[in-house]
């Protein structure tokens, strides 16, 4: 394994929660992107974890923007940079609410018109910044402050929605697999046009597990098969070996659910729905990779 670059663009003085995977992911993203980068951040946990003006924990340019506006802002920025001949990376770093809910229109628009940028959705499966309300990305059965009895609807499949835009590059990742995340960001930024990376972002206060277990929760998500690591380059899908193994010999999903307070008391129906959605996704991805769809 190659060590990641030692340069840090996210300093230790962030105001993120202990055990925050979003800030951890951002460290890896920026190690891959380097200093000639503008991070466009809509309302989300990252709006807060940068620190409080006039201080900032970030050593790259961060452009904060309104909740629904990240991808559109990136469109304007990317156009201006290209016009000036500047190779600056434009990276949106947005939560799941800003991506799958309020930001989906501007996201779709920017993808459709071919904006040259990378959009990263760090998905903690709820509105974390406002105290864990349900989002379209919250999985069925999860307790949030607005689904006190557990969510009754399944998680919106943003990846299939994004895939329908025919991007040259899209991938899933998780900070529990930093080398993989780093390599995917590197590859994404080497390809012109719109790119998308969907990060699973375990959240100790929101998912209700001890702060030191974020990496373990991320690994369990992958090993149970609930979170599949893959990338799709110009339409060609490659599933990560770790996920291939998980599809064949999955760890029991109870291992993943049990350590998270948000799934305490999950009904059998919700658990079945979770499993069914997972199995359907596995079938779909395997068929696609085999070229039979």
């Amino acid at each position: 394994m190659n060590p990641l670059p030692s340069e840090e663009y996210v300093y230790k003085c962030t105001t993120a929660c202990a055990g925050c995977t979003s800030s951890l992911s951002l460290r890896y993203v920026l190690k891959a992107a380097g200093p000639d980068t503008v991070l466009v951040v809509p309302a989300c946990c990252t709006s807060v974890l940068q620190g409080v003006y006039p201080a900032t924990a970030m050593n790259v340019t961060v452009y904060n923007i309104a909740f629904a506006a990240a991808a559109a802002t990136a469109s304007g920025m990317a156009a201006a940079f290209r016009r000036q001949g500047r190779p600056t990376n434009v990276i949106c770093y947005a939560g799941d609410g800003g991506t799958v809910d309020i930001g989906i229109q501007s996201l779709s628009g920017a993808f459709e018109r071919g904006t040259d940028f990378l959009y990263i959705c760090y998905d903690n499966e709820a509105y974390g910044n406002t105290g864990m309300q349900r989002s379209g990305a919250t999985p069925i059965g999860a307790v949030t402050t607005t689904t006190p009895a557990g969510k009754t609807d399944t998680k919106k499949d943003i990846d299939r929605i994004v895939a329908a835009h025919g991007l040259p590059y899209m991938a899933t990742a998780c900070a529990a697999y930093p080398q993989d995340l780093y390599a995917k960001v590197k590859k994404a930024l080497s390809i012109p046009g719109p790119k998308f990376i969907h990060l699973l972002s375990p959240c100790p206060p929101g998912w209700r597990y001890p702060t030191e277990r974020s990496v373990e929760v991320g690994r369990l998500a992958v090993k149970t098969g609930l979170w599949v690591l893959y990338e799709r380059v110009h339409g060609e899908l490659t599933i990560n070996p770790v996920s291939k193994v998980a599809m064949k010999r999955p760890a029991p999903i109870e291992d993943y659910l049990r350590i998270q307070g948000r799934f305490r008391g999950i009904s059998d129906e919700a658990k079945s729905a979770l499993r069914a959605a997972m199995e359907q996704q596995h079938r779909r991805l395997l068929a696609e990779e085999a070229g039979s769809c």
């Binding site: 923007i65 506006a69 991808a71 201006a80």
Partner: peptide, 27 residues
């Protein structure tokens, strides 16, 4: 000689103008 960005809404039109202006372009 300009980039004409055919956005999908007015909210995005203004967002794109803000981004472009911040990046140094007249909008």
């Amino acid at each position: 000689e300009a980039d004409y960005i055919p956005v999908e809404s007015e909210h995005s039109a203004m967002a794109a103008c803000i981004g472009a202006s911040a990046a140094g372009a007249r909008t």
